[in-house]
């Protein structure tokens, strides 16, 4: 009688040796394509849409002014009125002058003329506060501004 050997089919496990390589590849991809988050947002911002937009170049020459209603966790304390955030904290409108001076000191003297202030504003905000900010910026001789927007069709109602 022939002896039937029960063939043990031991499937070889999938090699995970290349897993680190794959993950490292992903890691490098993200390291190259992203930038470090600089501030913790304390205001909720949904940017408006626009079609005629231009890219903001020279990231180091751009300073941000955030305007919007406070985030959910702070709503009870502060109410829904839109507020302005500079760097990491809420600020009053008259602090913009100081902010402009301190941002100017950070960059090279030769490039002060190229410095841009980018306004990141929520769609729900009324223009009153924006006008005040623009007046303060004019006062501080910071004339290059950018209205930060997303790419998308504008609703033409």
């Amino acid at each position: 009688m022939t002896k039937f050997k029960k063939q043990k089919k031991d499937s070889p496990g999938i090699s995970t040796a290349s897993l680190p390589d794959i993950v490292f590849m992903l890691l490098f991809f993200f390291m190259v394509t992203t930038v470090m988050r600089e501030v913790t947002l304390q205001v909720k911002i949904v940017k408006p849409t626009a079609t005629e937009i231009a890219k903001l170049e020279h990231k180091s020459l751009v300073s941000y002014i955030y305007v919007g209603p406070p985030i959910k966790g702070l709503l009870d304390k502060l109410g829904p009125e839109p507020r302005m955030q500079l760097n990491d904290a809420f600020a009053e409108i008259d602090e913009i002058g100081e902010f402009v001076v301190s941002e100017r000191e950070k960059i090279d003297e030769k490039e002060v003329g190229k410095q841009t202030f980018s306004l990141k504003v929520d769609t729900e905000v009324k223009m009153g506060i924006i006008s005040d900010i623009k007046m303060e910026l004019r006062e501080a001789q910071a004339l290059k501004i950018n209205y930060s927007t997303r790419k998308g069709e504008v609703l033409t109602k």
Binding site: M31, I53, A54, L56, S118, K144, I145, N146, S148
Partner: peptide, 18 residues
């Protein structure tokens, strides 16, 4: 977690001087 990917875009304007 610590990085953002959004490229900044927007409408560039020059304010009138004081």
């Amino acid at each position: 977690v610590t990085t953002t990917m959004d490229i900044d875009k927007g409408l560039n304007r020059i304010l009138p001087p004081k």
